[in-house]
C-alpha cells in the first residue's frame, strides 16, 4: 500500500488554499479546530477531535522515499545573503562531478527560491508521473526540486504562512521521485522557523547526516549563526562544520586584499572555536562567484584557478571525509 501512490498533481502555489482557511492555526496547534478561522472549515471537526495532533500521516511515505537516499545534508545559516544557495549549488556540482554518484538538491526556501537561477535551470518545469514528480535534472546525476519550477512567472510571489509551506516541504520529500541518491542537499531559507522545523521533523526518522553552516565574517552574521548552532543542538542535528564566506576581497586591479566585512569579533574561525564546531574553511569574495550564480554556470568549472575555487574544493573534501 505504501509503495503504490497515485500520481500527485503539482500544486499551483498561487492558488487559494483548497483545504485550509487563510488563518489556519495548523493542525497540530492546540487551537486546531477551535480558532476563529476554523469556523466553517470542512476539517474543523477532525481538528477539534485531537486526532490531528498525532504524528504527521506523511511520515511513513517520507521514510519510504528517503530509504534510498544515503546521505542527507542541510545547508543552514542564520542570516540571509551569506551564500547558502551558492554554496549548495557548488557542493551539488562537486558531488555530481563523480559520475558514479547521484545527487539531489532540494530548495526549501519557499519565498525566495534562488537555486533554479544559480543552477541555470530557471525556466524548467516539473513533470508528474505515476512514480511522483520528476526533479529537474541539471545533468544526468544532479536532480533539483524547488518551488521556483512551479511558478508561472519568476516575478510571482509565494505568500504563504507556515502550514502551507510545511505541506509543500512534505510533498517535496514524499512525492518527488528522487530515486536512489548518494547525497541529498537541502538548501534552506534564513532563520530558524517553519521550514527548518518541518524539514527536521520529516527527516528525523530517516536520519540527517548533518548540517553545514554558512556565515560571513561580521558579528551581525555571527550572532545569527550562534542561534543556528543552538537550534541544531536543540533539535539534535550534528553540525558538520562552519564555512566563512565572503572572507576578504582581492582587488582585481592591484591584487591587494581587503576586508569588506570585517571580522570585528574574530570571524568564523573564532566562533567555531567558541562553540566547539569544526571550522571548514574561508572562501574569499570573488566578484565572479556572484556573476556565475547569475548566469547559472558552475564557478568551480569556469574559474578553476581562482583562490575561491581552491577554498571551495578544500571545504568540500572535508565535508566528504566526514560522511
Amino acid at each position: 500500500m505504501l509503495a503504490v501512490q497515485q500520481a500527485t498533481s503539482i500544486p499551483d502555489p498561487l492558488s487559494v488554499p483548497s483545504n485550509a482557511p487563510e488563518h489556519c492555526p495548523g493542525t497540530e496547534s492546540d487551537l486546531a479546530g477551535k480558532a476563529d478561522a476554523c469556523a466553517g472549515c470542512a476539517n474543523q471537526e477532525i481538528c477539534a477531535s485531537g486526532q490531528t495532533k498525532g504524528p504527521d500521516p506523511a511520515l511513513p511515505f517520507v521514510r519510504d522515499r528517503m530509504s534510498t537516499v544515503k546521505h542527507k545534508i542541510l545547508v543552514l545559516s542564520g542570516k540571509g545573503g551569506v551564500g547558502k544557495s551558492t554554496f549548495t549549488a557548488q557542493l551539488g556540482w562537486a558531488f555530481a562531478a563523480d559520475e558514479d554518484s547521484q545527487t539531489g538538491i532540494m530548495d526549501v526556501d519557499i519565498c525566495g527560491p534562488s537555486i533554479p537561477t544559480i543552477l541555470g535551470i530557471a525556466n524548467e518545469q516539473i513533470h508528474s508521473s505515476s512514480s511522483g514528480w520528476s526533479p529537474v535534472y541539471v545533468q544526468d546525476n544532479l536532480g533539483v526540486m524547488s518551488v521556483g519550477f512551479m511558478l508561472p512567472s519568476a516575478r510571482d510571489a509565494v505568500m504563504w504562512r507556515g502550514p502551507k509551506k510545511n505541506g509543500l516541504i512534505s510533498q517535496f520529500l514524499k512525492d518527488v521521485d528522487w530515486g536512489t541518491l548518494d547525497y541529498l542537499l537541502v538548501d534552506t531559507p534564513p532563520g530558524t522557523s517553519d521550514e527548518h522545523l518541518s524539514i527536521v521533523t520529516y527527516l528525523r526518522e530517516s536520519g540527517i547526516d548533518g548540517a553545514v553552516l554558512i556565515t560571513t565574517p561580521q558579528e551581525v552574521a555571527l550572532q545569527d549563526v550562534r542561534r543556528e548552532i543552538n537550534f541544531c543542538r536543540k533539535v539534535g542535528i550534528k553540525v558538520l562544520g562552519l564555512v566563512e564566506n565572503m572572507s576578504g576581497f582581492v582587488c582585481p586591479n592591484c591584487k591587494g586584499e581587503s576586508q569588506i566585512f570585517k571580522p570585528s569579533t574574530g570571524g568564523g574561525r573564532q566562533l567555531a572555536k567558541e562553540m566547539g564546531v569544526e571550522f571548514l574553511g574561508a572562501v574569499p569574495l570573488d566578484p565572479r562567484i556572484g556573476k556565475s550564480a547569475d548566469y547559472g554556470v558552475s564557478f568551480l568549472d569556469e574559474y578553476p584557478d581562482s583562490p575561491a575555487t581552491t577554498a571551495y574544493l578544500d571545504i568540500i573534501d572535508k565535508i566528504k571525509a566526514q560522511l
Partner: peptide, 13 residues
Amino acid sequence: KKEDSVVWRGPKK
C-alpha cells in the same frame, strides 16, 4: 542570552 535561538512557527510569530 544573545545566542538564544527563537525557533517559532507562524502562529507564535
